[in-house]
């Protein structure tokens, strides 16, 4: 972030457990055909920190975390996770890294041919290769209780509401106990009450599992609840960063209009 000359950084204390940087992004660029989606992204995520990326739709917020998870390959720039260059990893190395990274998709992305229980067991048996059914059941029950859906184990995803799908999606991601969580628009399409519940759940889960998180959203309420630090994105660049309260008082025109529009 410090390398970006245009950025209006607000000096506010940031709450983190340590100063260890788990994700380091510098000068990240990504284009789709002629369209330059990421122009110059710079971000450091510290261990135990919740960073919220705010911005309008279609600005490439999701592209950033898809690059982190290795779903997209950036055109240029540095991108390291736990000190290892994601862009140079082969398939097996990416697979190992992904075990440490949880990714909550906008829709929850539940496997719709499986029950909730099977959805939750999938990463345990395929990724962690657990064989002990007792341990699997225990983990499933633990995460289901954690997200407040202990009685949904035998339901199909089609029987769940939007909010419930996101909770189960979160449970499926947390069941392997990742060190980093990437949230892609976790509250989009939900009513304000459910949005708040999901935001509080994210915060609670972060405290319980001690994850470091990047939360992509355009929901200010979600940002207010979950963020230790907020970065604002516009035109493929991060244009401001600081605590939620500091950005609310920012002099930057775009940041001000973004915060005022959503009031």
């Amino acid at each position: 972030m410090a390398d970006n000359k245009d950025i209006s950084t607000v000096d506010q204390p940031v709450k983190t457990d340590t100063n260890e940087v788990v994700i380091h992004i510098k000068g990240l660029k990504k284009s789709f055909g002629e369209k330059e989606v990421l122009r110059d992204i710079n971000l450091d995520l510290k261990r135990g920190e919740n960073v919220v990326v705010l911005g309008r739709s279609g600005q490439g917020k999701s592209v950033t975390i898809q690059c982190i998870a290795g779903l997209l390959t950036p055109d240029d720039g540095e991108l390291t996770v736990f000190g290892e260059d994601v862009t140079q990893m082969n398939e097996d190395e990416l697979k190992q890294l992904r075990i440490k990274i949880g990714f909550l998709f906008q829709s929850g992305a539940l496997y719709d041919s499986m029950t909730v229980r099977e959805n939750l067991e999938f990463p345990l048996t395929r990724v962690l290769k657990l064989k002990d059914q007792q341990e699997i059941d225990q983990r499933v029950e633990e995460v289901l209780e954690g997200v407040g859906l202990a009685d949904a184990a035998d339901k199909m995803p089609s029987d769940l509401s939007g909010g419930m799908r996101k909770r189960i999606g979160l449970a499926r991601t947390l069941i392997v106990k990742p060190e980093i969580m990437l949230y892609d628009e976790p509250t989009t399409g939900l009513d304000p009450i459910t949005s708040r519940e999901i935001s509080e759940l994210i915060l609670n889960m972060q405290r319980k599992y001690k994850t470091s998180s990047i939360i992509i959203t355009h929901d200010l309420e979600c940002a207010k609840i979950t963020a230790d630090r907020v970065v604002v994105m516009n035109d493929g660049e991060y244009i401001a960063e600081g605590t939620y309260e500091a950005l609310q008082a920012s002099e930057n025109e775009f940041v001000r209009s973004f915060f005022n529009e959503q009031k």
Binding site: A69, G70, L71, K95, Q96, R98, I99, I101, F103, F105, Q106, S107, A109, L110, Y111, D112, F122, P123, R126, V127, G169, R172, T173, V176
Partner: peptide, 14 residues
């Protein structure tokens, strides 16, 4: 389309 394949891939499954 519903990102289920991406979810599988990003979870470290095959």
């Amino acid at each position: 389309v519903t990102e289920q394949i991406d979810a599988m891939e990003v979870s470290g499954a095959n």
